[in-house]
Design a protein around this nucleic acid. Structure first.
Length: 360
DNA sequence: GTCCAGCAAG
DNA sequence: CTTGCTGGAC
């Protein structure tokens, strides 16, 4: 295997093609860790503004650890996969309070951090501490499977082992950080998922997939994600400028974020034009003389990795005089009342943000 | 609409 | 092996 040739080519390609990104050219493990968590399953263009906000608001580990979780979640709003934000915060506190503020500096130790798996541990270990451990992300799977012609399913256990092993044979001990950056950047810019420009690729002459016209077949990824449909009716209940909200609990999506009281149904028909008498929240508040409104022509659709959510929104308006009664009801049901400013400052799922934006 | 990004936790 | 997000490309 001409692995040194492959490595050499990548290392030569990288300096001329690398993007200037604010987390490169630093050895600060905090900055590198922060950027890697933000970039998990996220494209650079989308993560960039969040990175700047986090660096400005939380310039170091201690300040991140000192902030309340709600503030972290609010700053994370819109980025998705909110467990990353919760783990980020928990991890900062763990390092500050249990590890004397010292960031772990070896791959094995980094793996013990919340939210840090094999990829992120390898990234931090190599970029911050120059440990020769290979990153294996989607870019690496793609580049290696194509160049070396490996058709093992990258989702399988065997596939993960095979690619990890190969990547660790290829990484040079002298500059592992450059190599890791190079192969990922190469996958992101040159060996792109669809329609790569193989004729202008420096690896073209020796690429297995290119020679055999298998570029579009590699990498092999068995996909059968079952997507579960869910049907929500959200209640926007308000009185005197105060809105009923609730913090989402564990065991479901959007854990720790804030949304509204909701009733879930098992059919699409049930949420299409929701009738007040079918909604338990409305029935419970009926004695307060609420005004019921629904403007739903078709429910909102919101796609998650394993769920397809259809949501209708109904508005339940109460007179200002009923505010204290409403507050009582909210408290009894595990909800809270907040004003518009308060709602703005809470971390919310994108679906809720979109609804609030169109309300204005 | 479908595919892609594509890592970590339970 | 299943679940968790959102946005952009096609």
């Amino acid at each position: 295997m001409d692995s040194s040739y492959f490595t050499e080519k990548l290392l030569r390609w990288y300096p001329h093609n690398r993007r200037d990104l604010p987390w490169r050219d630093t050895r600060d493990p905090y900055i590198i860790w922060l950027s890697e968590i933000i970039l998990q399953q996220t494209r650079v263009a989308q993560g960039l503004p969040y990175f700047y906000e986090f660096v400005n608001k939380f310039p170091n580990l201690a300040q991140l650890a000192a902030a309340p979780e709600s503030e972290i979640l609010r700053s994370w709003q819109g980025l998705g996969y909110y467990s990353r934000a919760r783990n980020l915060h928990a991890c900062a506190r763990e390092i500050v309070h249990q590890r004397n503020g010292k960031f772990p500096d070896r791959y094995k130790d980094l793996l013990t951090l919340k939210g840090v798996g094999p990829y992120t541990a390898a990234a931090i270990a190599s970029f911050a501490f120059r440990e020769p451990v290979a990153v294996v992300d989607g870019n690496v799977y793609r580049v290696l499977s194509r160049y070396f012609g490996i058709s093992t399913d990258i989702g399988s256990h065997a596939g993960k082992k095979e690619f990890e092993s190969l990547a660790n044979q290829l990484i040079p001990k002298s500059n592992p950080d450059e190599y890791n950056q190079a192969i990922m950047e190469f996958g992101a810019l040159q060996c792109v998922p669809t329609n790569p420009d193989c004729l202008n690729c420096p690896l073209h002459p020796d690429c297995f997939a290119s020679k055999r016209e298998l570029v579009h077949n590699l990498p092999v990824k068995e996909k059968k994600t079952k997507v579960r449909p869910r049907y929500f009716v959200y209640h926007y209940i308000h009185a005197a400028g105060h809105i009923v909200v609730r913090k989402r609990a564990a065991k479901d999506i959007w854990q720790g974020l804030v949304d509204f009281p909701l009733e879930e149904f098992s059919t699409k028909e049930a949420i299409f034009s929701p009738k007040p008498e079918n909604l338990s929240a409305f029935r419970e508040l009926a004695s307060l003389g609420p005004v019921f409104e629904t403007h739903v022509e078709k429910p909102w659709r919101h796609i998650l990795s394993h769920q397809r959510i259809f949501a209708s929104f109904v508005e339940i308006k109460l007179k200002a005089a009923q505010k204290s009664q409403l507050e009582k009801w909210a408290t009894e049901n595990g909800y809270t009342l907040t004003d518009e400013q308060g709602l703005e400052e809470m971390g919310k799922p994108k679906l809720i943000v979109r609804y609030l934006n169109q309300k204005k």
